[in-house]
């Protein structure tokens, strides 16, 4: 077993959960990152696009701000350009088709006790595990 980041994981997770709860409480929206992005690239009134664009900019600025204060955090790419291109296409396509990702289905959907989100979360974790097993231990 690798060394898990116990405190960072729990504290970071709690902050993610707090942000998701705040977006629902203050803005009345679900903090599902794939859904927020999808609404940005599909036909939507400008008013809908602005808060979504602000959310994406907030994601970038949070990490930029943290990096500026504490220095860059590790980011160890696990595959080359072709792999990242394919992975990005699959992640974009799959999350749009299933209306959610790790945050929308995993964090918010489970909190709403949504059976759809439970099925989606189990499915994407299972296929992630299967993919890593095949790419790291079989081929």
């Amino acid at each position: 077993m690798a060394d898990a980041n116990i405190y960072g994981g729990l504290l970071g997770g709690a902050l993610i959960g707090l942000a998701a709860a705040l977006l629902l409480l203050v803005n009345g929206r679900i903090a599902g990152v794939s859904g927020i992005c999808a609404g940005l690239i599909s036909a939507n009134p400008l008013r809908e696009k602005f808060w979504r664009a602000a959310f994406v900019m907030g994601l970038v600025s949070g990490s930029a701000l943290y990096g500026w204060i504490h220095g860059a955090t590790p980011l160890r790419l696990q595959t080359g350009s072709a792999g990242l291109l394919l992975a990005g296409l699959l992640v974009g396509f799959g999350t749009r088709l299933s209306s959610g990702c790790t945050s929308g289905h995993g964090v918010c959907g489970l909190a709403r006790r949504s059976p759809r989100s439970l099925v989606a979360t189990i499915t994407f974790i299972a296929f992630g595990v299967l993919t890593v097993y095949l790419t790291r231990h079989v081929f």
């Binding site: 699959l90 992640v91 989606a120 974790i125 993919t131």
Partner: peptide
Amino acid sequence: LIIGAAIFGIGWGLGGFCPGPALASL
């Protein structure tokens, strides 16, 4: 729902990125 989640899972397993962390990493 299931096919989409499966496709997402395959992409997640290939790159190790889901949408939130990928955008933050920009």
